[in-house]
Nucleic acid binder design. Sequence first.
DNA 1: AACTGTGAAGCCATTCACAGCT
DNA 2: AGCTGTGAATGGCTTCACAGTT
Lengths: 222, 222
Amino acid sequence: MKREPNAKEPMGRRAAISPLTVRRLSLYLRCLDHLAAEGVTTVSSRQLGDALGLTAAQVRKDLAQFGQFGRPGVGCHIADLAGRLRGIFGTDRRWELALVGVGSLGRALLRYRGFRDKGFHISAAFDTAAGKVGRKYGEVVVQRMSRLASVVAEKGIRLAVLTVPAAAAQDVADQLCRAGIRGILNFAPANLNVPEGVTVVPVDMAAQIEQLSYFVNSPNRA
Amino acid sequence: MKREPNAKEPMGRRAAISPLTVRRLSLYLRCLDHLAAEGVTTVSSRQLGDALGLTAAQVRKDLAQFGQFGRPGVGCHIADLAGRLRGIFGTDRRWELALVGVGSLGRALLRYRGFRDKGFHISAAFDTAAGKVGRKYGEVVVQRMSRLASVVAEKGIRLAVLTVPAAAAQDVADQLCRAGIRGILNFAPANLNVPEGVTVVPVDMAAQIEQLSYFVNSPNRA
DNA sequence: AACTGTGAAGCCATTCACAGCT
DNA sequence: AGCTGTGAATGGCTTCACAGTT
């Protein structure tokens, strides 16, 4: 995972957006959906910021990168903005996922509703353990690893969830990349090396609880 | 083993460290443990940086905040540095955790080895569902929520793992804070309001897969 | 009056470059 | 030589402040 100097290339009409901004966009969308469920139709940047602990200017700057939303004096139309954000994320369509590693975490994710609600459907699961192959968890039957490439091709799967032990992670990631996967949600505590064009988003829960104990441990509070 | 604090700050009180740095410290520690397991005893900032996709200068700046490590011409002694990092995180001692919400994700975390390996032990679990109370998952028996405060006090629990549905998250967080919890690892897709002195670290998997699809979807590579 | 969108300023984080140690 | 620790420079992110719109 090497960070290139990020040359400013004019390709595509979207300029590169910082990962920090992308993370906040998710928060905005969650908040908008929440408001919409309550019947609210309009929201100001200040309201959004207050709900999330951000400044109103930050919210406006983030959203401004994608064009003009809300009208002065009124605010943003929630449904419009939410739809637009979904378009940006690509969650206005359905995504098929492959999951590799059917341990306890993998099984939990096979049943996790949070993915389905956003349009992400785990439609194939793989494991090396013979005892697991053939078993059905949630909706999918576990298959052997040798079927990975053909299933990925057949179902047009572009994203994978990686829930194998750290020691196996790089090897499995290589297989996923060869199979044509474009993105990996990596739960293994390992840094993955992937070719250009494949994105890895790490979900390192061990690191996150470490952060928690750091902040609880340390005397400084902001 | 002479430590030379060099009078940056008196050792007792640490200056506030940016969350970005804290996240990288976790990566350093993981990498150091990995190297140590291979029998390596010394590492340079360049090697560490290369392994993680960071510059050598970044690594040195991050570590310099905590004093002097490695010797010029040699590098850092891995065991020393790792031990020091564990001290910073507080993972050189044992932590007791309470888990609230024994759904599929909660059950998976009750068995998750990644926490135990870092010294975090889930020693109590709670749920509102009568059907789950009394059942044993992994090592712990699920208890009813009304017992939360007394168990937390009794076992000296300071951290909690929150795996309840979003709609219940704030209410449960309030209960946790009243019970004296100091930190919450929040898996619920909701922004929690907590009093001063309580830390929340969000683990929003839905947002993370949204990020993944954004980067796969968008033309610009990072 | 309320709110947006945006240049400019301010602040923080990263990288550079080099003196100094082993 | 090889490496660290650190001031200086750079670059990026956030906040400020205000002109402009409804």
